[in-house]
């Protein structure tokens, strides 16, 4: 059995986004369902985001290190690792560096500043949960918003149904644009996904979000007021919405 120390050592040495994607997804699945199995479609999406071969070899590696386990039902996280892994992933997420023209911050500080801004600007906002500067549950005007730092753009569809059922807006912040996030675009065909989730990538100053929660306007304003910057919408996003039939161009476009 691999010790916690060797895993952390491995993560720190390799700092492989694919590995972080897999582990984060596995953790999300553990929280979500009883057996913690990573569903096939999520594995397929990860293969899509990176590539099939690399994914297979990384999974093999993690199985060998006994971080992941293979059961009859599929691949899941080794239960013994959940706690330490979750703490460690959080540390890594918080420590991710963000460099702007005038300012350098960690992702943890960035998210914390965002939440503080929301508390100042959005009247009557209530912070219902806060987890280690990586995750917040906020309540504003009778709507609930989960804000979370993330490595992977891949697992958001896995929580969309639940978010829709619980009437929660789920916003993730991470370096997604560099990880082929446009592969996730087809999920905007699903109402639960498009209505309840939002991607923000402050590293690349981009966002993909059509959920109708007013609090998200403050995300843009925060970025503008505190960092003098703007979340742009990648061109592929409206194109995809157009092809799904959610937006139209008049003929001058």
């Amino acid at each position: 059995m691999v010790s916690n120390l060797t895993l952390i050592d491995y993560l720190e040495k390799e700092s492989s986004y694919l590995c972080l994607n897999i582990l984060e997804s596995a953790l999300v699945c553990c929280r979500k369902n009883g057996n913690g199995v990573i569903p096939e479609p999520l594995l397929r999406d990860l293969a899509d985001l990176f590539d099939c071969r690399t994914l297979e070899s990384e999974i093999k590696n993690l199985l060998e290190r006994k971080v992941l386990i293979q059961t009859g039902e599929g691949i899941s996280l080794n239960r013994e690792k959940i706690h330490s892994l979750s703490i460690h992933l959080n540390q890594l997420k918080k420590a991710m560096k963000l460099t702007f023209t005038e300012k350098k911050v960690t992702a943890g500080i960035f998210l914390n500043e965002l939440v503080t801004y929301l508390e100042q600007e959005a009247s009557c906002l209530v912070e219902e949960e806060a987890n280690d500067c990586t995750e917040y549950l906020l309540v504003w005007r009778d709507n609930r918003y989960r804000l979370q730092l993330a490595f992977s753009p891949g697992w958001l569809p896995a929580v969309a149904d639940e978010a829709a059922a619980d009437n929660i807006y789920f916003a993730v912040l991470g370096p997604f644009a560099a990880q082929n996030w446009q592969k996730m675009l087809h999920y905007y065909g699903y109402p639960a996904f498009r209505n309840n989730t939002a991607y923000y990538d402050p590293w690349h100053h981009q966002k993909m979000n059509i959920s109708k929660g007013g609090l998200f306007s403050y995300f843009d304003w925060f970025f503008r007021d505190r960092y003098g910057s703007k979340f742009f919408i990648p061109d592929e996003f409206p194109c995809k919405l157009h092809s799904i039939g959610l937006l139209r161009y008049n003929d001058e476009k």
Binding site: N209, I210, S211, K212, G213, F216, S217, D220, F232, I233, F237, P238, L241, H242, G245, L246, L247, R248, Y249, N250, D251, E252, K253
Partner: peptide, 27 residues
């Protein structure tokens, strides 16, 4: 020549058109 759209108008259930001028803002 269509009148340039600077925001949009919707005829539900048909989706709204994108503005012909100005960056689209979708939230």
């Amino acid at each position: 020549t269509p009148v340039p759209l600077t925001s949009t108008w919707q005829m539900p259930p048909i989706p709204p058109a994108l503005p012909t001028f100005g960056k689209i803002k979708i939230r």
